[in-house]
Design a protein around this nucleic acid. Structure first.
Lengths: 208, 208
DNA sequence: ACTTTACCAGACAGGTCTGTATGGTAGCAA
DNA sequence: TTGCTACCATACAGACCTGTCTGGTAAAGT
């Protein structure tokens, strides 16, 4: 009932150059919202962590909903960047599909991993919350990325393969969250190899 | 911000035989907690829906946490019963593994499906909440069930196969929740067929 | 007739949350 | 100096939540 551990300010007045209030707020929100949940964390805790006045929050954001949305946007951008970095390492579409799973092994292994931010946020927020659009967008982006790659790879049914890979992706996040099992990433990747090869082998066979 | 639709009592004084307060409370809790989330639903809404006095709640349960735990216990029991019903229809371990996925197609298709109750509850509740044990138990039960079946089926690595199937299971729940896509169950099942056959074919090959 | 049990209805206290309003401070530019 | 901007600190209103308490009702047992 008391998850408010030590929320000491990120940087005090001692720092010669202080980042603007908006940045500090967003940084604090990302940390606290992800760690303890959007609902559990009140704005008082966020502003204390950011070392910011309450008025500065409502000057930079339209309210808590807006701050939550900004937090989710930032998560989305970070995930996209991480995946695209891994994508750039490979050329073949098959390897690129697997790179999506490579991008999740590192986060899942962190001790403070708490699951997919979008799954958690959707579970917490009411159905009409603003932030749900971001969650949907993030999922659509991943699915369409995989779908395009599956088409390039010559999968017999690219959309189905993409959705199946998303199942593994979400499942790995859920397992790591619930069972504290970082191996889920590797197992998801191994399963993805099977699904991808099966979907593409059929195509080759039908051509032959 | 206002998800409190029409929470009319389940049965009024008109009903000649009234179910005891405890049952009505649990029924109302199951509906509201699952539909709108454990955190969002206050006890006032539960007792109104159940047509029960507040004192009756605290006479039958130790508080909200206890009611939440009872709700999760009921969900676990229901899932277990549903899965075991499907299991009884088959004999071969391979078919029994797939039966676990069969048990989820019907719930996922319901319009008011809101995802896996345990995933949602874990995402919502603080880390030290009582109900998390139930969530862990439910996951462990599923994993061990699949693991035992995988062993019977002669999988080369039963534990890995079981965990991979759980990935698909959780992923299907997540996809149905987030994307409103009931087809996720069928796609998960199809992927499970591939994983199972691959894991058991190896065993056969190594024997040959 | 009396008591016990189970229950409903509502008031209330103590806490938390969001969002607003007030007042004070430091830096910078004209 | 004067004025402007960005900001911190805090108090406060209104709403909501949990949990306790009091009082009234009706049926069943003794």
């Amino acid at each position: 009932m008391k998850p408010e551990e030590m929320d000491k300010p990120l940087n005090g007045k001692t720092s010669s150059v202080r980042r603007p209030a908006r940045e500090r707020l967003l940084a604090a929100a990302e940390e606290l919202f992800y760690q303890d949940g959007v609902q559990s964390v009140g704005i008082d805790r966020v502003i204390e962590r950011a070392g910011v006045a309450k008025a500065s929050l409502y000057g930079n954001f339209n309210g808590k909903d807006d701050l939550v949305r900004a937090y989710l946007d930032a998560r989305f951008e970070a995930r996209r960047a991480a995946i695209e970095t891994k994508l750039a390492l490979h050329e073949a579409p098959r390897d690129k599909m697997l790179a999506v799973f490579d991008a999740m092994t590192e986060p899942l292994a962190k001790p403070n991993y708490r699951g997919c931010a979008f799954l958690r946020a959707t579970a917490e927020m009411p159905a009409d919350a603003t932030g749900r659009e971001v969650c949907r967008d993030a999922r659509r982006w991943t699915r369409e990325l995989l779908s395009g790659l599956a088409k390039e790879a010559g999968a017999s049914n690219p959309d189905v393969l993409a959705k199946q890979l998303v199942l593994l992706y979400d499942g790995a996040a859920a397992s790591a969250q619930m069972d504290r099992d970082p191996a889920a990433a590797a197992e998801a990747r191994a399963a993805a190899v099977l699904l991808i090869d099966a979907a593409c082998a059929k195509r080759v066979e039908s051509r032959a």
